[in-house]
Design a protein around this nucleic acid. Structure first.
Lengths: 226, 226, 226, 226
DNA sequence: CATGAATGAGTATTCATTCAT
DNA sequence: AATGAATGAATACTCATTCAT
């Protein structure tokens, strides 16, 4: 069985029907699981309950998933695909590296917000996620970091920013996005997602944007310094 | 039994002996548990293994702890006490609010580093920590935040800093401390704790320190802007 | 789950199949448990052994029973239903109150004999039977008593008997039935069930049948007095 | 260690002191245990609770008792000694066999009443009482039965009674005494011990006393037949 | 002797997974 | 393919008993 529900090469015929059903069922399972996971955590998410929540039988779940842990893998894979599809797309075609960074950060935060539940999993259920999934996740994170870091380096090269540790700054940005999910219990009482994005990006940019460009990026850095 | 290891009123007599033993045993248990928890997570931390690790019998564990979950409470309580004892102490007596902030952040990061394992637990095993413990932890975090925020507000009042959202900035500082534990797998390959503290505090300060004071805090903000 | 094996409203369809299986499994469990209980008592009746004895898995037992104690409830309920079905049926339609009493006592003793094991449980495992079951059992006993007492009162009214305490006499009869189970180790070495019934009923009747009717009930009172 | 706390041959000296302490401690344990046993049953009577109830330490209990089960043996032995001391004593010196029977039954019932708790044990905890104790108890019961049966046989021989099964009648009498303990929850709501003794003995005697002697034993048989 | 902390074998119960229908 | 009853390995917790103080 395994999880290689990789897309079939043709999009019709019995193969395609099967593949479509697999995708449909896995979506049912992933969606139901994400909800339960957030509510009760991995350990207390019983397969029985998951089946009820997903509206299928226990047996059906095991027809599309190898084990309870594999469900986490499925969820992780789902986030990964979303990230990889949306973040680069959002950044594409923007010349100004600082503006590109903003677009990327905003996209990243938006995904985190939409799939807050799933984002938490990597932190909360790290011990339960199979090795491979965790690896993929870490790599994806590093990949995103490098997108961000590239923007920063480019900005530095163009004199727009001054940053001794572009990688750390990029890292901070992804972490700030995760933080929206990790500390949502606190943040939601003070800020909307938009405010959060604006404020945090502003703070980061204020610490790197060159004095000469402060005015140029006033719409991003927010508060005028002087 | 309960976990009320409240201090005895006198420090001798049979009561005191008992209290001392309770503290000793609980330390054994907490230490062993923290290690196991990090290695295998809550679910796979078997009481049998914990007993072996702690060098006591299963029965003894249950003489000092009400349930497996209570062990998490014990750990949480332990961190709380450390934080409350050390962070304010580190900040005490420092006049300059920015310098005081630095001292607090440094202390906080140091504790996180020393008890990295325990810090992770709040994130990884949140679903398993009994309600009360989690509440306490959140409150403590808010408390620490307010220490930091107070510094920032004072600095703003004195014209040393300019910050639209002191609470968010304070929040970011505690989060940066936690991040040292959360992403240690990545950070440790690039920075020492000292470097990490210096760089992160520098970035935050650069985004709030008034231009007039940049020179004054050059040793903290690190890179000269221009 | 609960133990409400209430009859389904229709006797076919999936509901009925399920109900039938539940009854079948519970019978397996009750039968196996009764045997073990008598041999080793409640405490030493391990669920593992019960499963083996019943020819099912441990898990299956817990699919039809909520807890070890519930097994006792099941057994008690089983006896109750038998008593309620058979004792009144045996007494029905008999005009002569003394003859009716005899029929009832004989039926009661027969059930006790058939389910000697189960009868003992109420005495031996009283402390383990859940409250509700014990209540039911006591009420059923009082109910049976009142059947017997009614016969006696009717006999008194008809001048056939003379009895100052019909309730106590009825009570004694049910107790004599239980005694067959309680002291079987002794009684079985001296009497057959039939002899026991005849002798004990004879003794009770001799103490209440009016002199005028002694001849009429000679076949029950056994020994002629004079 | 064992339970052979048999009386020393001299009643002074260190031996006697020791023996006296053993008796004292065992009395403490037996008394506390009887109470707990009735309240919670053998299984739920924890040694810890017993120690508390008896006002001694756990260790002390094991200094005077070999095992938890031995406590039941101790209790049984205690009843046995009481029975053997008091029942024959009560019957001694009474010429009239029916009157002697009455005295014995009354004494037996009184002991049962005084040690209702202990009497129940033989029925409720039969599975937990060590073999030997149960044997002794059964033998004692047969012994008492034979005292009663002897009275009946003597009465028959003297023409005072007519009884086909003296042993069964004797057996019924001891069982009626036990019944006072077994069904105390019901009986106590209707009768005092004295009433109970009078009524039950009356019923038994009415079924065996010869017509010629009815008047002579009217004070025992209670109700006149005609 | 008395104490009570330490011990660890013993067991009820859960729940992921399978497989006959 | 879908179902859900059956399975039984896995594990937290208890409590009689011991023994160092």
């Amino acid at each position: 069985m395994a999880l290689n529900g990789d897309a079939p090469f043709r999009d019709d015929g019995p193969e395609a029907i099967k593949a479509a059903r697999v995708r449909w069922r896995r979506r049912q399972i992933v969606d139901a699981a994400t909800g339960l996971l957030i509510r009760v955590g991995f350990q207390r998410m019983l397969i029985t309950d998951l089946a009820k929540e997903a509206g299928v039988s226990v047996g059906t779940i095991y027809q599309y998933v190898d084990s309870k842990e594999d469900i986490l893998t499925l969820i992780v894979r789902d986030i990964l695909e979303t990230y990889r599809a949306e973040v680069p797309a959002a950044m594409e075609g923007i010349e100004d590296p600082i503006e590109r960074l903003e677009a990327g950060f905003r996209a990243y935060c938006s995904i985190v917000d939409e799939r807050r539940a799933a984002t938490l999993l990597a932190y909360q259920e790290g011990k339960n996620v199979p090795k491979k999934g965790l690896e993929d996740l870490k790599n994806m994170e590093l990949e995103t970091n490098s997108y961000f870091a590239d923007c920063i380096r480019e900005a530095v090269a163009q004199g727009r920013a001054c940053c001794a540790e572009p990688d750390l700054t990029a890292f901070n940005l992804t972490m700030l996005a995760h933080t929206w999910a990790l500390k949502h219990w606190y943040l939601k009482t003070h800020f909307s997602l938009d405010e959060y994005i604006k404020l945090q990006l502003g703070a980061v940019l204020r610490s790197i944007v060159s004095d000469d460009y402060h005015d140029a990026y006033k719409h991003l850095t927010g508060v005028a310094k002087a």
